[in-house]
């Protein structure tokens, strides 16, 4: 500091030393560069490539960069492929609704009813214990549970509740939904519990003091204030479910084909252009879902 003060009169006569240096003037660009380069290399270029490739001409054994709409028309004209889009959307909505239905009360319990911070953390960690094992094992573990001679059927038969094993449990859309809900419900619980735990107790006290009953307080205070958590959870679940393929193929016996499964088979048979079309469709669907969800709550203001 002292040195700078002494140098001032000299520096003023030499403009280049007086003004801020190159790093000071362009420092923010320099700091921005790694992120921007990373995003361009690994997000913008691949996305652009995907869109570009979706218009290429596909023959049985080769793909040529001659632009055509053929892959696109095939997708929307085909019952199988367009049906897969509708099925994906239906399963996504069901799973989203069910993860909310099971996740919200769990989060409410952890975030509001458990007052001890340590116990809260322990319970949240307990929710992610299934993640200590591989994703595929978690999915496949449902087979001995839901199968014709699986745990649930044996138990129900043993208790004499049913005579015949329930067959719809495995290798149906139901088993896919059960598997997905179990795997993804945690992503709903976490953000909501976090949001609920952050609400200041004095707000509930104020509402009670103003004469509101516990139910009214939940409807008017607790739920609206936890909404950002619900939206974040919904975004997590949506993005993961929309791109799913492993759960669907493992628990449906390849009967339930989601968009993700079609991409896998198309890539497997080197149909790059068609896989790219589905990729673009999935990206558009996810982008619109996220946009709509963000409209519900202004996350930038809330977080």
């Amino acid at each position: 500091m002292d040195g700078a003060a002494v140098e001032t009169p000299i520096a003023s006569s030499v403009p280049s030393r007086d003004g801020p240096g190159f790093f000071q003037r362009h420092g923010h660009l320099l700091l921005l560069a790694p992120g921007v380069i990373w995003m361009i290399l690994f997000l913008v270029i691949p996305l652009a490539m995907m869109v570009y490739v979706s218009f290429w001409t596909q023959t049985t054994f080769a793909i040529k960069p001659d632009l055509t709409l053929k892959s696109w028309t095939t997708f929307f004209a085909s019952e199988t492929y367009f049906g897969a889009l509708l099925r994906t959307l239906r399963i996504w909505l069901t799973v989203l609704f069910l993860t909310f239905l099971f996740g919200y009360p769990t989060a409410l319990y952890i975030g509001q009813f458990v007052r001890n911070k340590t116990v809260q953390t322990i319970l949240l960690v307990a929710c992610v214990i299934p993640f200590w094992t591989s994703f595929l094992i978690r999915v496949l573990a449902w087979r001995p549970m839901l199968g014709k001679e699986g745990a649930i059927n044996i138990l129900l038969q043993g208790l004499g509740i049913i005579d015949q094993p329930i067959e719809v449990l495995l290798f149906t859309e139901l088993s896919v939904i059960i598997g997905m809900v179990q795997i993804y419900v945690v992503f709903m619980v976490g953000p909501i519990a976090f949001m609920l735990a952050r609400i200041d107790d004095s707000l509930f006290e104020a509402a009670r003091d103003l004469g509101a009953s516990p139910m009214t307080i939940f409807r008017k205070i607790t739920f609206p204030l936890s909404l950002p958590g619900v939206v974040v959870g919904a975004i997590f679940v949506s993005v993961m479910v929309l791109g799913e393929f492993a759960t669907a193929s493992a628990l449906s016996g390849r009967k339930v084909n989601l968009l993700g499964n079609i991409i896998v088979t198309q890539v497997g048979s080197l149909k790059w252009a068609f896989a790219a079309v589905i990729g673009v469709v999935l990206t558009v669907v996810m982008a619109s879902v996220i946009t709509v969800l963000l409209r519900v709550v202004n996350l930038r203001r809330e977080l």
Partner: peptide, 27 residues
């Protein structure tokens, strides 16, 4: 009625809705 030290206003509501809370939602 209690006026708390930290005011405890409902952050998701407007000033008007905050004030109206007791009138609208009391049991």
């Amino acid at each position: 009625g209690i006026v708390q030290q930290n005011y405890a206003l409902f952050p998701h509501l407007s000033v008007e809705d905050n004030v109206a809370f007791g009138l609208r939602y009391r049991l």
